[in-house]
């Protein structure tokens, strides 16, 4: 499993264009936000900042995870994956996706802070939310990416399948982020964080159980 995980990291680094295209995608999205929201003085509207931030991340993350299986439809990797246990494969995919999503979240926040503003008052809590949400995105989207990769119009199907599923994670994340901006006490966000953690556990357990059925073909 460790080898699988490392292999994916190595493959990704070798294809530098992919990483660069992702960063550019994110940067352009943030720039569009900046151009369209710039006149509004977003830092005075905590709800708007939080919503726009998470929507930007969502579309980037969906696009990122969507290609985690499509890239492997052809080539030697099929042979490789016929050798390994599907359960191990999905775990390594989720972990790798977690790494990528975490990177995207961090980069997204950096872009937002420089271009728009940084209204976050409770940084540690916000960082925890980012980590939990990245794991949730990765766990729920990896399985859907595997499903979408089997269809002939994968990218549209990926979006259709994933949006209703990640709404729960998104709602909780937006709420905690707004609490962080308002500088509320941490006890105000406990319910949301616990729910987020529970969603993560549920989604990764179900992915782990269901993935072998997709992989059989």
């Amino acid at each position: 499993m460790k080898e699988l995980f490392l292999l994916q990291v190595r493959l990704e680094i070798r294809k530098k264009s992919v990483v660069i295209s992702l960063v550019l995608y994110l940067l352009s999205l943030v720039f569009i936000n900046y151009v369209s929201l710039g006149p509004l003085n977003v830092s005075s509207l905590p709800g708007v900042w939080s919503a726009v931030f998470w929507l930007t991340l969502l579309s980037t993350v969906v696009n990122t995870i969507a290609k985690s299986f499509t890239a492997e439809r052809s080539g030697a990797s099929i042979y490789l994956y016929s050798l390994v246990d599907p359960a191990e494969l999905i775990i390594s995919k989720i972990l790798y996706g977690f790494l990528l999503c975490g990177g995207i979240c961090a980069a997204g926040f950096l872009f937002f802070a420089t271009l728009l503003s940084n209204p976050i008052q409770d940084m540690p809590l916000f960082a925890l939310t980012l980590v939990l949400a990245s794991f949730g995105f990765s766990a729920s989207l990896s399985l859907l990416a595997a499903i979408a990769a089997k269809t002939n119009n994968g990218s549209v199907i990926m979006a259709v399948l994933s949006f209703p599923v990640v709404i729960g994670i998104l709602l909780m994340a937006i709420k905690v982020t707004k609490n962080c901006i308002d500088g509320l006490e941490r006890s105000a966000s406990v319910d949301e964080l616990v729910t987020l953690g529970a969603i993560n556990l549920l989604v990764s357990a179900v992915s782990y159980l269901l993935f072998p059925y997709i992989w059989r073909s």
């Binding site: 399985l143 499903i147 599923v165 729960g168 969603i199 549920l202 179900v206 269901l210 059925y213």
Partner: peptide
């Protein structure tokens, strides 16, 4: 069938 089970599970918290 896989999506059905997965989506139902994801719907429970919601």
């Amino acid at each position: 069938a896989v999506y059905n089970i997965f989506a139902f599970a994801a719907m429970i918290p919601l």
